[in-house]
Design a protein around this nucleic acid. Structure first.
Length: 284
DNA sequence: CTCCAGGGATGAT
DNA sequence: ATCATCCATGGA
């Protein structure tokens, strides 16, 4: 099998796919299989080259955000010990451009779940209700459309291990299908307005809205605050304070990390989860 | 403001 | 083999 290839500098495919921003790629041979939108894709990294099948080079560059000026982005981070350690640990990690609905739906299912669960839910939804695609000698499934999800029942979704999230995903799928929530049109909105619209959707609060803004709308300032990031922030930036409120944390993150705060967040998050930079249990 | 549902993988004992 | 822990949203 002959694969197309492109040059990809400052990029680490495995690290990017394992950083908690996307949940459906699976290892296959020396690479990964998954979908980019409706297409089944195989992609494999050898040094600074990406070998791929299933989509055009242009789509690979766009999806993996190979055009993001990663060196400049990293230079824009604040110069403090925690940030520098995270930056060194996360070389080549990029914030990718995910399809809007797929990202929104996946993060609605992610609430109160750990990465392993989110992957299971994604797989269940895809294999049951997505479109089957062949790529090389693998089979993959695209993420089901909002229209497809909207026709399901609460029980159908619960059977995919969504638990109480079934209700909110179903309600949001129906809003998107009816056109009351126009995810594509929302790309024109300001950050503030986009956040407000997202938070109106069932199952979307501050954290999920930030993830969707960052991973599907390329709002690179968006700074999702989950328990991991909260631990990092409290330990590394507020260690002298005994009590830190959510409002204080939010205000700090919006200004301190700068115009690429979302990248900074992703790096701190990945370093904390994979690098053991913070203890699992919060220090009181 | 506080409290808590609900569930399956993962880590600890 | 049991037991505790992880987790965000929304409603009481």
């Amino acid at each position: 099998m002959r694969l197309a290839h492109i040059t990809a500098d400052d990029f680490d495919l495995a690290r990017t796919l394992d950083s908690g921003q996307v949940f459906h790629w699976e290892t296959s041979g020396d690479g990964f299989v998954g979908t980019i939108g409706a297409k089944g894709v195989y992609v494999e990294q050898r040094r600074n080259r990406l070998f791929f099948s299933g989509v055009t080079a242009k789509m690979i560059v766009y999806y993996f955000a190979l055009d993001h000026p990663l060196r400049e982005i990293c230079r824009s981070f604040p110069d403090d010990p925690a940030m520098c350690a995270a930056r060194d640990f996360c070389a080549g990690l990029r914030i990718i451009r995910q399809p809007r609905w797929e990202c929104l739906a996946t993060f609605i299912t992610s609430s109160m779940k750990q990465v392993a669960h989110i992957r299971q839910i994604s797989r269940a939804l895809r294999t049951r209700y997505g479109r089957r695609q062949r790529v090389l000698d693998s089979e993959v499934h695209s993420f089901p459309t909002p229209r497809r999800i909207a026709k399901l029942t609460d029980q159908d979704l619960r059977a995919c291990a969504l638990g109480y999230r079934a209700k909110t995903l179903l309600a949001t799928a129906r809003l998107v299908t009816s056109g009351d929530a126009d995810l594509e049109q929302w790309s024109e909105l300001s950050d503030e307005s986009l956040r407000a619209h997202l938070c109106e959707l069932p199952g979307v609060g501050a954290k999920v809205a930030s993830c969707v803004m960052l991973f599907a709308y390329e709002r690179l300032r968006a700074f999702p605050i989950d328990v991991w990031i909260e631990r990092v922030l409290k330990q590394k930036y507020f260690s002298r304070k005994r009590k830190v409120t959510a409002t204080q944390l939010r205000a700090f993150c919006e200004t301190y990390f700068g115009e690429h705060g979302g990248y900074a967040q992703q790096y701190l998050f990945h370093h904390a989860r994979k690098g053991g930079a913070v203890p699992r249990v919060a220090t009181k």
